[in-house]
Simulated scan of single mutants.
Amino acid sequence: MKIFLKSLIVTGILVASCAKNPFTGKSTMALVPNSQIFPSAFQQYDQFLSENKVLKGTSDAKRIETIGIKIKTASERFLTANGKSDYLNDYKWEYNLVESKEINAWCMPGGKIVFYTGILPVCKDDAGIAAVMGHEVAHALANHGQQRMSAGLLQQAVGVGAAVAAEKYVPKYQNEAMQAYGAGSQVLGILPFSRAHESEADMIGLTLMAIAGYDPINAVKVWERMSAQSEGKSQPEFLSTHPSNQTRIDELTALLPQAKAEAAKFGVTFK
């Protein structure tokens, strides 16, 4: 009976703490509100910039900002057309290019974006930058940071319950039970959750770059180049937070007609 009541309480909390992704219509976990997440993210972003070499005024830095603004505008057009014009009110967009050999780019919750110079050769051109920019902006728009934080809190809560149960019913094997829970919750829970976010960001980003006027086929080309860069280095997909390169290429290719169809609604067409 107690377990049933606890389950009802947990279920009630989860239902009451849901948000809706405006791009997919799916309900998502929102145990921590953005009003708490954004200020912390902005502070961390500023600290990162103060500790790294930020390039200003160069042609590449200007490209990052220009393309970032185009992707942001595309997201505004999409959200306005779908009755969500106020969705971005708390976002504070910023685009910076940081000198680093690392092949990476990221976006903090609330729209704070960093590109490393190391990823520019993989992007190759403006359309490639738009593909990566769309993906990173999509993470922020879909509140993936909020969802991962919520999932982490839920995992901790369930872990505490598992520890109590193990201590009561199998005290002799409590350490082994908790190790099994930790590994299982990662491989079966958190990692697939992260991979789903990456696939979702690919889908949303593809749509945004298309609305912004960049042919979405270039997202496929970026991941083909990324795959060539990382050949022989990637770990098995089920142990990774990201889908395999080939999985991404296949999924993006399948999504091209959908992205082009969305762009056509805004008067943007491709051959």
Rank of each mutant, 00 (worst) to 15 (best):
G128Q: 07
R248K: 04
P171T: 11
E231P: 01
G83R: 00
K172M: 08
K112D: 05
A165L: 15
E224L: 05
L206K: 07
N245R: 01
E176V: 05
N82L: 04
R63L: 07
H144R: 14
Q235R: 02
T73A: 03
G152Q: 11
M1R: 14
Y87H: 15
P39H: 11
G111V: 02
A201W: 10
P109I: 00
E176Y: 09
G159P: 14
F23G: 00
S17V: 06
Q155H: 08
F38K: 00
S59G: 11
G57A: 09
R225P: 01
A254H: 03
R77G: 02
H144G: 12
D90R: 13
S150E: 11
E231H: 00
K62S: 11
D215H: 10
G161M: 13
S240T: 02
M108E: 07
V15W: 15
E176W: 06
K168N: 08
D46I: 04
V137I: 12
A138E: 10
S17P: 06
G213M: 08
Y116K: 01
Y95Q: 13
G134T: 07
R225N: 02
I217E: 09
Q179K: 14
F42D: 05
A259P: 05
H135K: 12
L5V: 09
A264K: 15
S194Y: 00
F23Q: 01
T207K: 07
Y45A: 09
V187M: 11
L239C: 04
K124W: 07
